[in-house]
Simulated scan of single mutants.
Amino acid sequence: MDSSIFHALQERLFASHAVASVGSVALATAVSYPLDTIKLLIQVGSSSSKQLTATQALHRLQTLSGYSGLYSGFGWLTFGRIFGVGTRFGVYEILTAFYKDGREDNYVYVSEALMAGMAAGAAESLISSPFELMKVRAQVSSASRVQSSSSVAENRTVALFTGRLLHGHTPDLKALNHSAGLLSILTTKHPNLIGALQEYPWMMTGSGRPPSVCNVRRPSDIVSLEGWGAFWRGLRPGVVRDSVFGGIFFSSWQFLHQAMLDWKAVGMHPEPRSDEEIGPLSPLAVSLAAGFSGTVAAAASHGFDTAKCRSQCIVVPKYISMERKMLKWNRPGKRFERYTGIHPSDRNLLLRGIWFRMARSGLASFVIVGSYFLALDHLIPS
């Protein structure tokens, strides 16, 4: 075969796999996204004294944003999933290629799939974290009441420094004046102490608290107020979550795949000496195995998902982050909680929304694998 024809066929094969992968991930995200939105609202809307139910979350979302709010932030997650899932499967295939090197049957043990999956999940978390932050804040904003400025006069009273950090944000003037009034008894030589204090980021809301995530959801606002590091907020629980998910997903999928091959080999004459002689499994069987593996992996890693989502809903100005580094601020909680990024106040909330995440992960995994095989059948001629 001519080398130019061979390279053309290789390029066409690569393009077909790329198109099938992107399309399957986008389709799976679109199908399972409403479950992800409800899951997130339950996670961030619940507290130790108030448990938000799915009905309450859906009613609040419908009231404030309509049913279109179920897809708030869909574009961010789609881009993040395309790059993240591609990284997960790519790293897994590279690592397992070293395991299979020199083996006649290209077999991968379950323990090897577990280790490769954990490394692949960690790599996925580093890439998808910025997209998840934007997605989470868009979902929270769709179910939250955003207070807009009521008059032009109020906009003129916004501190100049606040306007540079967070464009279009109007602080609570009543709370701001009250906080400033408490400082009027202090004696100082500063010509305008109250005005100077109002320009600090801590006084943006007028109560000394940072703004809501509803006011800090655009990339420019996040960079201006919180810095570039905010895009990787919750990285510790995110890495642990994706490592656990990737390890359990690939190991359980490998176990089920081998079990189905062994079942298919029963009664074959002569007895197959390798998996290649057994033949491929049906796409439906492989998709069902992937869906079940995704459900189990989601259940095992859900606590870390809750910790990551709740941490991404906290606005921390970069000046506070700088102070924490200078003061060598210690993370609260026990040693395991500090290492994995779980806040002690979230201990009783880690399992909130677990059923929705299990359903979403199982459905998404099934659709990704099934639509991938279906797309390849149409793109690559037999």
Rank of each mutant, 00 (worst) to 15 (best):
I5N: 09
A15R: 07
L35M: 02
V44G: 07
S47N: 06
K50G: 11
Q51I: 09
T53C: 10
S65W: 01
G66F: 01
S68F: 06
F79L: 08
G86N: 11
G102F: 10
D105E: 15
D105A: 02
Y107D: 12
M118T: 07
A120I: 03
G121L: 12
L133E: 00
V140N: 06
V140P: 00
S142H: 01
S144F: 14
S148I: 12
S150G: 12
S150V: 12
R156T: 11
V158W: 09
G168D: 15
H178W: 02
S179M: 04
G181F: 02
P191I: 10
M203L: 11
M204P: 05
T205L: 05
T205V: 08
V216Y: 09
P219K: 02
P219R: 06
W228T: 12
G229Y: 15
G234Y: 10
L235P: 01
P237W: 12
V240G: 06
F245L: 11
F250A: 01
F250E: 02
S251L: 02
Q254L: 07
Q254H: 03
F255L: 10
H257S: 07
M260E: 02
W263N: 05
P270C: 12
I278C: 09
P283T: 08
A285K: 07
F292N: 10
F292T: 10
F292K: 05
A297Q: 05
F304W: 07
D305Q: 08
T306M: 06
A307K: 07
I314H: 02
V316H: 11
Y319Q: 10
I320S: 06
M322E: 09
L327V: 15
G333I: 09
R335H: 15
R335D: 14
F336A: 15
Y339S: 15
Y339G: 15
W355A: 08
M358K: 05
M358H: 07
V369F: 03
L374W: 00
L376G: 15
I380Q: 12
